[in-house]
Structure formats: structure tokens, C-alpha cells
């Protein structure tokens, strides 16, 4: 990546543009990719060739993808301060809107109209969690072994009551050791 191609921006500009991106991302991080492309490449901040790399890295790194993209892009544009400005911008609309709703909603929770609306919404939300899960499964579970791993982690969390954090830690340790040993063996041949 060559730094000289990147046009500079003021920290306020960065904050503003990422606030706009944050405000218009509804749902998941994928929805924001076209918006990011439009906002950042039209300003010459990030080239179109760089974007897939930024997205891939932001997806595989821990944390929220939208936030990771902001950190990464902000860093490429204005370094450490740039990434803080971009992140703050991306998070600010969420923070303000949710706080406003949370404060108002606590007063309406027992209103009979609100109660029956949410009786209808709750089963819908559960179904909507299952949809991205199946879409992800189709992409990342191509072998019986991957399906077994998915099923095992579901059972361990939902039925045995083990914290997802321990499951992830165990999988990271086992897969790291497995890949490392396999690499060593192949190198030794």
C-alpha cells in the first residue's frame, strides 16, 4: 500500500463522513460497504483496489466489522488520530439514537399497545437471527466436518450452557496447533 496516493482530510471531515456512514448502516456491516466505497473513493481517500483487502481484514479481525473498517480506513487516511476520529464518527449516531430510544422506551414498556406490538416482534426477531446463520452456514460449512463443528458449538452453548468465549478459545487453540503441526510436517518432507 502506498501512502502517497491517499489524499489528506481534516479530522472533522473524517468524523463527519464516518458519522454519515454509521447513520445509514441499518442491520449488518455488509450494508455499509457500498456506502463506504462511494464516500471514500469519491474523495480519493481509499482506492477501489484497496477496499476488498480492508473489508476482508475487517471481517476476520475480532470486533464489529463496521468499526474495524473505520479504524483501518481512518488509519490509512490520517494515522492514529484519523482512526480515532473515524471510529468516533461511526459510533456516534448509534449512541445518540439508541440512548434516546432507551430513555423514552423505559417509560412506555408497560403501555398495553407497546406490549402487544412487542409480543408480535419477539418471535420475528428470533427468526431473523436464524436467517444470517443459515446464509453463513452455506458459505462456511462445506464439509460434514464443518457442519459437525457448527452443531457441536450450538449444542454446547444452548444445551450444556458453556460460555461461547470458552468454545472460541478452545477452537482457536486446537485449530492453531493442528495447522501449525501440519505445516511443520509438510515443511519437513
Amino acid at each position: 500500500m502506498n501512502q502517497d496516493k491517499v489524499k489528506t482530510a481534516s479530522l472533522w471531515q473524517l468524523f463527519g463522513v464516518f458519522a454519515k456512514i454509521g447513520a445509514f448502516t441499518i442491520g449488518g456491516g455488509y450494508a455499509m460497504i457500498p456506502l463506504i466505497q462511494r464516500e471514500l473513493s469519491s474523495r480519493g481517500w481509499i482506492s477501489d483496489e484497496e477496499l476488498p483487502d480492508i473489508v476482508a481484514l475487517s471481517q476476520s479481525a475480532p470486533g464489529i466489522m463496521a468499526v474495524n473498517i473505520s479504524i483501518f480506513a481512518g488509519y490509512r487516511i490520517r494515522g492514529l488520530k484519523g482512526s480515532l476520529a473515524a471510529t468516533l464518527g461511526a459510533v456516534m449516531p448509534s449512541f445518540i439514537i439508541i440512548l434516546a430510544i432507551a430513555m423514552v422506551f423505559s417509560g412506555f414498556k408497560d403501555n398495553p399497545v407497546v406490549v402487544s406490538i412487542f409480543k408480535g416482534i419477539r418471535p420475528v426477531v428470533i427468526a431473523l437471527i436464524a436467517v444470517p446463520m443459515l446464509n453463513m452456514a452455506k458459505k462456511s460449512c462445506r464439509t460434514w466436518w464443518a457442519w459437525a463443528l457448527a452443531a457441536l458449538s450450538l449444542l454446547m452453548v444452548a444445551f450444556v450452557g458453556i460460555s461461547p468465549i470458552y468454545i472460541l478459545l478452545a477452537v482457536i487453540i486446537v485449530s492453531f496447533s493442528y495447522t501449525y503441526i501440519k505445516m511443520k510436517k509438510e515443511a519437513g518432507r
Binding site: 452443531a151 458449538s153 449444542l155 461461547p164 492453531f176 501449525y180
Partner: peptide, 24 residues
């Protein structure tokens, strides 16, 4: 190494999301 670990993590995460739905 990174790709190897991710190949295991992705299906695990699918299971975790499923668990979230089941717990609800």
C-alpha cells in the same frame, strides 16, 4: 496459519449464532 484457524472458526461461529436463537 491464519487461514487454517479461520477455517475452524467460521463454522463455530455459525453454531454460536444458532445457539443465540435457540436460547431465546
Amino acid at each position: 496459519l491464519f487461514e487454517g484457524v479461520m477455517g475452524w472458526l467460521r463454522p463455530t461461529v455459525v453454531g454460536l449464532i444458532g445457539a443465540a436463537a435457540v436460547i431465546l
